[in-house]
Write a protein that binds this DNA or RNA. Structure first.
Lengths: 118, 118
DNA sequence: CAAACATTGACACGGTTGTGGTAAGGTTGG
DNA sequence: CCAACCTTACCACAACCGTGTCAATGTTTG
């Protein structure tokens, strides 16, 4: 029932190159089984996963290493907590930083630059 | 009046270089206010944030861009969902793929592929 | 056995990250 | 006014990411 493909076959049906399949594995995003002699064996689940991953990357403009980092985040709760806490502190942005100032500055700068160029 | 530091002062008290403070800002991880003439003004909160960030990076061996990505994840729920879903599917690794089966699969494989290609 | 395919390891190469510089020019303050 | 500071915009450079390719070597199979 469950058929497993070797790397080039998997490459053919997933759109990844064989090289990239090895790379993706090294990134820890898939873990194909191995035959007794060391050949990678991609099962249907893995193949689907690889196709989905490809879609994920292109649809969201996300990189492989970013997905790998997300995986690390899910694994390491401590890290997730630390980062999450740090980011939360960011949201607490004191309102005294008036956005208007910045805009005004940008406008002013533009005028200054234009004046300088003239 | 407002005890806000300019970039080199901020660099001195946070341990970042002025260059890196600009870089970190560009990465979207801090947003110092600006004086009317465009000088960055780092308030106490920002300074603390910068120190904490430095600690975060070294303690967890995390890169600046990874933290930036985490920020993106928090901002973009859709992306977070998509990645989270993909990762969840990974955990669902059926152990039914047993070593004994490989032999048989290897034998069947060729026939299946040939049949499929025909 | 020989052809076809797999494995690891390495070289290569353009693109990004992290970091330091330098230059050209505005701002500040004594 | 002048020195010291700030700004942006570049050049540089090592280290890594994503990819291809090639070599040396083991495996499967007609």
């Amino acid at each position: 029932m469950t058929q497993a493909l070797t790397i080039n076959e998997a490459a053919a049906t997933t759109g990844w190159s064989a090289r990239m399949l090895r790379y993706v594995e090294q990134a820890g995003l898939v873990a194909p089984a191995r035959s007794a002699s060391g050949y990678r064996l991609f099962g249907p689940g893995e193949l689907q996963r690889l196709r989905t991953l490809k879609e994920l990357l292109s649809q969201f403009e996300v990189s492989l290493s970013e997905v790998a980092f997300a995986a690390r985040l899910e694994r390491d709760g401590q890290l997730r907590e630390a980062i999450s806490a740090w980011l939360a502190a960011e949201a607490e942005r004191p309102a005294e930083v008036r956005a208007d100032d910045w805009l005004r500055f940008e406008q002013d700068k533009h005028e200054r630059l234009l004046a300088a160029a003239a």
